[in-house]
């Protein structure tokens, strides 16, 4: 199951026209290298959309979100097998 985290994180990545690809992120003191971006989605409730990135790092799935209104990144959830 996905465990809810909702903690602020730092993210580094690559911008190409119309697209951002996270390459690594820091959660607490640990840095995770993104091995794959498995799903992108955009959620709109209000004028400012929230961008969701599901990424594989250290062998598990992390759900990240980017909030453009305050340029904030969050680690929303992490997959934990058997939880």
């Amino acid at each position: 199951m996905y465990q809810t985290i909702h903690e602020s994180i730092e993210v580094a990545g690559v911008f190409t026209p119309g697209k951002f690809s996270p390459t690594k992120f820091r959660w607490g003191k640990k840095t995770f290298a993104v091995e794959a971006i498995t799903l992108l989605s955009r959620e709109r409730d209000g004028l400012v959309p929230i961008h969701h990135y599901s990424v594989v790092a250290s062998g598990t799935v992390f759900r990240l979100s980017f909030h453009p209104d305050n340029l904030a990144w969050f680690l929303e959830e992490v997959w934990q097998e058997g939880a």
Partner: peptide, 9 residues
């Protein structure tokens, strides 16, 4: 399928 796409596990 979309959730399986998201999560290779």
């Amino acid at each position: 399928t979309l959730l399986q796409q998201e999560n290779p596990a």
